[in-house]
Amino acid sequence: MTANVNRRIERLIQSHPSQDGDGVKIQRIHRFDGELDPFLMLDELGSDRPNDYVGGFPPHPHRGIQTLTYIVHGGITHEDHLGHSSTIHAGDAQWMHTGRGIVHSEMPLTDSQGLHGFQLWINLSARDKLSEARYRDVRSDEMPRLASMRAELVALGGQWRRIDGNGVAGPLDSLAGDSAVAHATLQPGGELALAVGSETLAIYVFEGTLEIAGEAVAAGQLARLGAGDTLTLSSVEGAQCLILAGTPHREPIAHYGPFVMNDMREIDQALNDYRNGTFTD
């Protein structure tokens, strides 16, 4: 019998301040070089000052990716050219498969704790980049929980399993790259031990300090983990994080603004389609 191998940190990536949309302030991690394949970018929106986000994200196009938006506090209202209109609040998520093309807007809402949320970009494989656009929202009560020692995992999508074999499956079952996404909360002294064999595994800490195999990860940092089949998270004072697991496409990545394709010729085609009005045909 092969012994379990606990996954360790290979690299820490620090998020950096940026702006997008109509001046929305965000913390961003982007890796369009394939380092986190199939994940491309993670934006954290978090502020108790409305001027940091009130402008929102007016109508804009996407092609070649999936987006997953998850709200911790506040909310987001989504509208798109397909006729979808939906508002999500704390604990809810929105998933968008842009495929060939979608034009949408995202307008932030606030609650007593301001706005705090995330948007993750997941790359589509070459065969799916010109597929039909789709959209779905998922409510908090649809997401199963997996409890551990003073810790809890909320499964947004994919399969999640503790090392004792107990597991749950998140409602988003069509994430590109066989991806799985979860939100983990550890109370002071909490520990969460998972069986995770996905080739790509990354942890983004957004509150407190997390220990992974004895190494500390602070809020605002993403840990890219090495090979193995088990993951142990712990925290002395408490922490929250997003866990991202997936299978690399291992395909060329060409990126320009809201478009992610496999080469610049396809990027030029996306720009031309958007300019001449055939983008969503």
Rank of each mutant, 00 (worst) to 15 (best):
H84F: 12
D43R: 03
G56D: 02
T209W: 00
L242Y: 02
D268L: 12
R11E: 12
L186C: 09
Q27M: 14
R31N: 08
S105I: 03
H104M: 12
R11V: 11
K129Q: 14
Y256E: 00
P61F: 00
D43M: 11
I9E: 05
L109C: 00
Q19Y: 11
A227P: 01
V236N: 09
Q27S: 15
R250C: 08
P258S: 04
M1I: 09
L244N: 04
V24Y: 02
T232C: 12
P188Q: 09
D33R: 08
D164W: 01
I212T: 05
L231R: 07
A147H: 13
W160R: 05
N166P: 00
L233Q: 01
G74D: 04
I243C: 13
Y204N: 00
S234E: 11
A133L: 04
V217H: 07
Q269N: 09
L210D: 01
K25E: 11
G46P: 00
S140I: 00
A216C: 06
T232K: 14
H84T: 11
S112M: 07
A147L: 05
T110H: 13
T232Y: 00
T232M: 10
G189V: 06
G56Q: 10
R275K: 14
H62A: 07
V24T: 09
D178W: 05
N123K: 12
P248A: 09
P17G: 11
A180G: 15
N6C: 12
D178H: 15
M264S: 13
N123M: 07
R63P: 04
S235P: 00
L42N: 01
A219P: 06
D229C: 03
A223I: 04
T278F: 08
L175I: 09
Q159I: 10
S179K: 06
N262K: 05
